[in-house]
Amino acid sequence: MVRLLERRQRTASVLTFFAIATFSLHILVLFLFLLQGLNIRQLSLRKPPNFVQLINGKPVDNIDDLAREPEAIRQFISKTMISMFSWSGTLPPQNLEEVASLKPDLGILINTPQGGSQKITTSSWVASFALSEEFRKGFLSTVAEMTPPEVFSENPNQAMTSQLIIKRVYPPKQIAPGKWQVGMVADLVQKNRVGGARLITPFNKDFLVRATDYFANPQANNSTDLQKAIYSVRADRLEIDEIRNLCLLDDYNSNADKSKQCVTGQTSDSFIR
């Protein structure tokens, strides 16, 4: 009888120990799950590393999220404005097959301040995503007013093209953390496809640029060519906040006659002199 009681006590002790060990193991696993969840959440909230500045095709890493290389800013301005004001009437080729047979650019309708709507080229619309959201809408309306309808004409005798010829982009001047002022001297050349008649308009502008965040395309493999192009524009982590007429007599030109003054009162509403 005594031996039977001892066996029962030993069995009860083993079961109790096993239950306590199992419960402790469950608590440990739950704690590890909670810790892993917190780590995943921190990773999801962390900003992507700043490897987006490209100089001569090579990424430049900056520890400061608001820091940008001067050459990267100048390339951003040049690339954006060339895409914005180079109109060929055709879409950029996406592969070798399209190089031989370019697709016509049907354009994108933009509302104008007069209440109507006019077309801008697809390249202009994509490049406009390099502008800040509050500035983009008004700028697109101005670009639509500047874009001749002949750009989209299927009649070769009426078709026109446009190209922005950049003469100089001045070194960026930092005006605040993550904000720069950049001057550009260029000409906007519009040309008839037949006959070659040209209209040259000075395009001397002062850009206010600021650093921005960027988040990669979550569905890069399923994106359209247009979506990929837009994400590529935003990948520079820079955006244009304002465009003014450039005064060629300001501090950009060290040899300028300081006794002369530029015309005042010109705002970002006037993009072409």
Rank of each mutant, 00 (worst) to 15 (best):
M1W: 12
V2T: 11
V2N: 12
L4G: 07
L5W: 06
R7H: 11
R8C: 10
Q9K: 14
R10V: 07
T11D: 12
F17E: 15
F23V: 09
S24H: 02
H26S: 12
H26F: 15
I27A: 13
V29S: 09
L34N: 08
G37C: 08
R41A: 14
P49I: 09
V52R: 11
Q53K: 02
L54S: 11
D61H: 12
D61Y: 12
I63L: 15
D64Y: 10
D64L: 07
R74S: 13
Q75P: 00
F76P: 04
S88T: 15
S88K: 13
Q94M: 10
Q94L: 14
L96I: 08
V99S: 08
P104H: 08
P104A: 02
G107Q: 06
L109Q: 15
L109I: 08
G115K: 07
S117W: 04
T121Q: 08
T122P: 03
T122C: 07
F129W: 15
L131D: 08
G138R: 11
G138I: 06
F139S: 03
F139Y: 15
S141P: 00
S141G: 15
S141F: 02
T142R: 15
T142W: 02
P156Q: 08
I165C: 03
R168H: 13
V169H: 08
K173E: 11
V182S: 06
K191L: 00
R193Y: 00
G195R: 04
A197T: 11
D206E: 15
V209D: 07
R210H: 15
T212P: 00
D213A: 14
Y214A: 01
F215Y: 11
T224L: 04
D225V: 10
D225Q: 10
L226S: 08
I230W: 07
A235R: 14
I240L: 04
I240R: 05
D241C: 05
R244F: 07
L246Y: 01
D251L: 07
D251C: 01
Y252G: 03
A256K: 04
Q261V: 11
T264G: 09
T264H: 11
R273K: 14
